[in-house]
Design a protein around this nucleic acid. Structure first.
Lengths: 159, 159
DNA sequence: AGTGATACTGAGAGTCGTTCTCAACCAGTG
DNA sequence: CACTGGTTGAGAACGACTCTCAGTATCACT
């Protein structure tokens, strides 16, 4: 793992970090690449991928696997948080509601794992998509293309 | 979504389901393909992928994204459950400890999402890898190759 | 300023997991 | 028996990502 001190802040890396910081959504690497090219048209995709990996490994960004196809997503919000992904528009919103420590400890005890972290993501319909699916006029809502994330685990109660 | 009644149980599909049911681990599609070929050598990879997608969409299997590279994993245990993934050997074990319903309801309320399900996965070291990493003689533990899943969110307490 | 060592970059090729295409096949139905 | 429509297998195609490599920038010394 590259150490923090060892990291040169080149213009390209700055540009990638800027884009990530400015992003309100959770862009894929390809989206980051596209946005960075607006300010640094000569940057290569390999540099963007390398830089994203570097930012992740030095703790300046988070990598997310939201299960929509293959593309990893990136998040400059490095505080521990989770996500809710909309089955309609594919949008992901941040959730700041940690799993109770007691539960983690209990799972560690039962499984024997030394647990260092976890990923939690919820699936469902965002408020916009709920409104437009009950609406006969299907207002597309906006952000992304429709992603067909089939529910991978079904909730066993209320919701 | 293909309906259950609509599903022909061809020999190929039976073979894939058999392999999945017999698997104690969480095989990737490529692993399923390899195992199915032992009994049905003429099967094509497209058929395996198609069948896995079919099984998932009809609720006969679960698709997992354990974040180790790109490959999706499959699980014939369709009951709601979560996973703990070992950073050492890449192995995933089942965790049967649901998130409290109250927490899900609270998140639904706060985010406005109509939550239909969730995915929770823990990361850490399995008992075997803990033993072999403290051991000077690094007993490899066994199942898989070493996967370098860099921690994507760090736990904020005890563990 | 000159010199070498080292890190970084961009282009393009390569890899990997997955999906698509398409002709051939098979199982029912009329 | 011919028709119809779902299913199959081979291979091409695709998207996301990584690797390779020559060229460039930056640093530490002199």
């Amino acid at each position: 793992m590259t150490d923090l001190a060892d990291l040169r802040l080149t213009p390209q890396r700055m540009a990638v970090l800027e884009v990530l910081r400015a992003a309100a959504d959770h862009p894929t690497a390809a989206e980051v690449y596209e946005r960075v090219r607006r300010s640094s048209p000569r940057i290569g995709s390999a540099t963007v991928y390398r830089t994203l990996a570097l930012l992740v490994s030095t703790g300046r960004a988070l990598e997310l696997n939201l299960g929509d196809g293959a593309a990893a997503r990136y998040d400059a919000n490095t505080c521990r948080h989770d996500h809710a992904v909309c089955d309609g528009c594919g949008r992901a919103v941040d959730i700041d509601h940690p799993v109770p420590d007691g539960m983690v400890a209990e799972i560690a005890r039962r499984s024997g794992f030394a647990i260092t972290g976890y990923d939690l993501q919820f699936r469902g319909m965002c408020p916009d998509c709920q409104a437009s699916s009950s609406d006969p006029a299907r207002a597309a809502g906006g952000t992304g293309p429709t992603v067909n994330t089939h529910a991978k685990g079904v909730l066993h109660a209320e919701a």
